[in-house]
């Protein structure tokens, strides 16, 4: 099963991520997002950041998760190689996500970056389950 793929969009970037579980599809969405900047396999994996976000629903959770990755890039130059130990829980109508992001900082090595994500959007956002597969769709403002 493909992890993610990019779709046509007039002005911005639209992608779909796939997974066998909510954690799996969220991880693949992160890889898709990271690949906008640089293909994850091109990034070293010596550094790590612990990510903790929450949201009132699955879409807000996704939005806050991807925005945290954007924030880490913008402020620390963090580039993503992989997501590990992803856990998503819901308690009292609030969703919690914790994950380990492995990657590198731009200050450590000369990385050639492709496109600058400006913001995560709710435009055409989907978080759904079809049969036994989870699908996420997101549009990123660039």
């Amino acid at each position: 099963m493909k992890e993610y793929e990019f779709l046509e969009h007039t002005a911005d970037i639209k992608f779909r991520a796939y997974g066998k579980s909510l954690e799996n599809v969220f991880s693949n969405a992160a890889l898709a997002f990271g690949s906008i900047l640089i293909k994850p396999e091109k990034v070293e994996s010596n550094e790590e950041k612990i990510i903790k976000v929450n949201g009132n629903d699955e879409k807000s959770l996704l939005y806050n998760f991807l925005e945290e990755l954007l924030f880490l890039f913008d402020t620390e130059g963090f580039l993503l190689n992989n997501i590990e130990n992803m856990k998503i829980e819901s308690k009292d109508k609030v969703f919690f996500l914790k994950a380990k992001a492995k990657g590198d900082f731009t200050k450590n090595k000369k990385y050639e970056l492709e496109t600058e994500p400006k913001a995560v959007t709710y435009n055409e956002m989907e978080v759904k389950k079809e049969k036994s597969n989870y699908i996420i769709q997101v549009v990123i403002d660039i």
Binding site: F6, L7, E8, H9, T10, A11, D12, I13, T115, I142
Partner: peptide, 8 residues
């Protein structure tokens, strides 16, 4: 305004 997607 844009007419063509970035991928395209």
């Amino acid at each position: 305004g844009r007419v063509m997607s970035r991928n395209q």
